[in-house]
Protein backbone atom coordinates (compact mmCIF):
# COMPACT_ATOMS: atom_id res chain seq x y z
CA UNK A 1 0.00 0.00 0.00
CA UNK A 2 2.10 2.89 -1.27
CA UNK A 3 -0.66 5.26 -0.10
CA UNK A 4 0.55 4.69 3.46
CA UNK A 5 4.23 5.25 2.68
CA UNK A 6 3.31 8.46 0.94
CA UNK A 7 0.95 9.62 3.66
CA UNK A 8 3.94 9.54 6.01
CA UNK A 9 5.77 12.00 3.73
CA UNK A 10 2.83 14.35 3.25
CA UNK A 11 3.83 17.27 5.46
CA UNK A 12 7.24 17.87 3.91
CA UNK A 13 5.88 17.08 0.47
CA UNK A 14 3.05 19.64 0.84
CA UNK A 15 4.97 22.37 2.63
CA UNK A 16 8.65 22.25 1.63
CA UNK A 17 9.78 21.15 5.08
CA UNK A 18 13.52 20.53 5.02
CA UNK A 19 16.35 19.92 7.45
CA UNK A 20 18.60 22.67 8.73
CA UNK A 21 21.89 22.20 10.57
CA UNK A 22 21.96 24.15 13.82
CA UNK A 23 25.74 24.59 13.54
CA UNK A 24 26.63 25.34 9.92
CA UNK A 25 23.19 26.34 8.66
CA UNK A 26 23.17 23.89 5.73
CA UNK A 27 19.69 23.03 4.55
CA UNK A 28 18.47 19.93 2.72
CA UNK A 29 15.28 18.87 1.03
CA UNK A 30 13.77 16.36 1.44
CA UNK A 31 14.43 16.37 5.18
CA UNK A 32 16.55 13.69 6.72
CA UNK A 33 17.08 12.46 10.23
CA UNK A 34 20.35 12.47 12.06
CA UNK A 35 23.39 14.69 12.00
CA UNK A 36 24.39 17.19 9.35
CA UNK A 37 26.45 15.44 6.68
CA UNK A 38 28.56 18.52 6.14
CA UNK A 39 29.68 19.28 9.69
CA UNK A 40 28.13 16.59 11.92
CA UNK A 41 26.02 19.16 13.76
CA UNK A 42 22.54 18.69 15.22
CA UNK A 43 19.70 19.30 12.78
CA UNK A 44 16.12 20.54 12.96
CA UNK A 45 13.15 20.69 10.62
CA UNK A 46 12.43 24.04 8.98
CA UNK A 47 9.94 25.37 6.45
CA UNK A 48 11.97 26.38 3.40
CA UNK A 49 11.35 29.52 1.33
CA UNK A 50 8.80 29.08 -1.44
CA UNK A 51 10.69 31.03 -4.08
CA UNK A 52 13.70 30.01 -6.08
CA UNK A 53 15.33 30.07 -9.45
CA UNK A 54 15.77 27.43 -12.12
CA UNK A 55 19.31 26.04 -12.37
CA UNK A 56 18.58 23.42 -15.01
CA UNK A 57 15.72 21.31 -16.31
CA UNK A 58 14.61 18.51 -18.56
CA UNK A 59 11.47 17.77 -20.50
CA UNK A 60 10.49 14.17 -19.83
CA UNK A 61 8.95 12.42 -22.82
CA UNK A 62 9.29 8.83 -21.61
CA UNK A 63 7.50 8.78 -18.28
CA UNK A 64 7.15 6.16 -15.55
CA UNK A 65 3.76 4.54 -15.07
CA UNK A 66 2.43 6.94 -12.44
CA UNK A 67 3.18 9.96 -14.61
CA UNK A 68 2.45 8.52 -18.03
CA UNK A 69 -0.60 10.72 -18.61
CA UNK A 70 1.35 13.84 -17.61
CA UNK A 71 4.10 13.60 -20.23
CA UNK A 72 5.69 15.53 -21.70
CA UNK A 73 6.37 17.35 -18.45
CA UNK A 74 9.20 19.52 -17.15
CA UNK A 75 11.32 18.71 -14.11
CA UNK A 76 13.48 21.49 -12.73
CA UNK A 77 16.68 21.54 -10.69
CA UNK A 78 15.84 24.49 -8.49
CA UNK A 79 17.77 26.62 -6.01
CA UNK A 80 15.53 28.14 -3.34
CA UNK A 81 16.23 31.68 -2.17
CA UNK A 82 18.16 30.33 0.85
CA UNK A 83 20.38 28.14 -1.33
CA UNK A 84 18.62 24.78 -0.87
CA UNK A 85 18.67 22.77 -4.08
CA UNK A 86 15.96 20.35 -5.06
CA UNK A 87 14.18 18.68 -7.94
CA UNK A 88 10.54 19.42 -8.59
CA UNK A 89 8.09 19.34 -11.44
CA UNK A 90 7.24 22.64 -13.07
CA UNK A 91 3.63 23.46 -13.84
CA UNK A 92 1.63 26.18 -15.60
CA UNK A 93 4.45 26.49 -18.08
CA UNK A 94 4.85 25.48 -21.69
CA UNK A 95 8.08 23.79 -22.83
CA UNK A 96 8.96 26.85 -24.95
CA UNK A 97 8.68 29.19 -21.95
CA UNK A 98 11.32 27.49 -19.78
CA UNK A 99 14.52 29.50 -19.22
CA UNK A 100 17.45 28.67 -16.95
CA UNK A 101 17.56 31.37 -14.28
CA UNK A 102 13.82 32.08 -14.28
CA UNK A 103 12.10 32.87 -10.96
CA UNK A 104 9.76 30.20 -9.65
CA UNK A 105 7.40 29.77 -6.72
CA UNK A 106 6.02 26.69 -5.02
CA UNK A 107 2.41 25.64 -5.30
CA UNK A 108 0.42 22.52 -4.42
CA UNK A 109 -0.71 20.22 -7.21
CA UNK A 110 -1.76 16.68 -7.85
CA UNK A 111 1.30 14.55 -8.49
CA UNK A 112 -0.43 11.34 -9.49
CA UNK A 113 -3.37 9.12 -8.79
CA UNK A 114 -3.25 5.43 -7.99
CA UNK A 115 -5.23 3.65 -10.66
CA UNK A 116 -6.87 0.95 -8.58
CA UNK A 117 -7.55 2.84 -5.38
CA UNK A 118 -8.07 6.26 -6.95
CA UNK A 119 -5.97 7.71 -4.14
CA UNK A 120 -4.66 11.17 -5.07
CA UNK A 121 -1.14 12.16 -4.06
CA UNK A 122 -0.62 15.93 -3.73
CA UNK A 123 2.72 17.65 -3.51
CA UNK A 124 4.78 20.71 -4.26
CA UNK A 125 5.34 21.80 -7.84
CA UNK A 126 6.87 25.07 -9.01
CA UNK A 127 5.44 27.62 -11.41
CA UNK A 128 6.63 30.93 -12.84
CA UNK A 129 6.09 33.65 -10.21
CA UNK A 130 2.66 35.31 -10.40
CA UNK A 131 2.57 38.84 -8.97
Amino acid sequence: MPEITEWRDRIWRYRLIGTKCKSCGSTYYPPRNGKCFRCGGETEEVELPRRGKLLSYTIVYQAPTLYKHSSPYIVGYIELSNGTRLFAMLTDIEPGEVRVGMELEATLRRLYTYGDSGHIVYGVKFRPVVE
Binding site: H69, S70, R109
Partner: peptide, 13 residues
Protein backbone atom coordinates in the same frame (compact mmCIF):
# COMPACT_ATOMS: atom_id res chain seq x y z
CA UNK B 1 -8.03 23.33 -14.74
CA UNK B 2 -4.65 22.00 -15.76
CA UNK B 3 -4.29 18.22 -15.66
CA UNK B 4 -2.80 18.50 -12.16
CA UNK B 5 -5.41 20.80 -10.64
CA UNK B 6 -8.66 20.11 -8.84
CA UNK B 7 -10.99 22.00 -6.52
CA UNK B 8 -8.64 21.26 -3.62
CA UNK B 9 -5.48 22.69 -5.22
CA UNK B 10 -7.50 25.75 -6.28
CA UNK B 11 -8.71 26.13 -2.69
CA UNK B 12 -5.11 25.81 -1.50
CA UNK B 13 -3.97 28.71 -3.68
Amino acid sequence: PSYDEDSLTIAYE
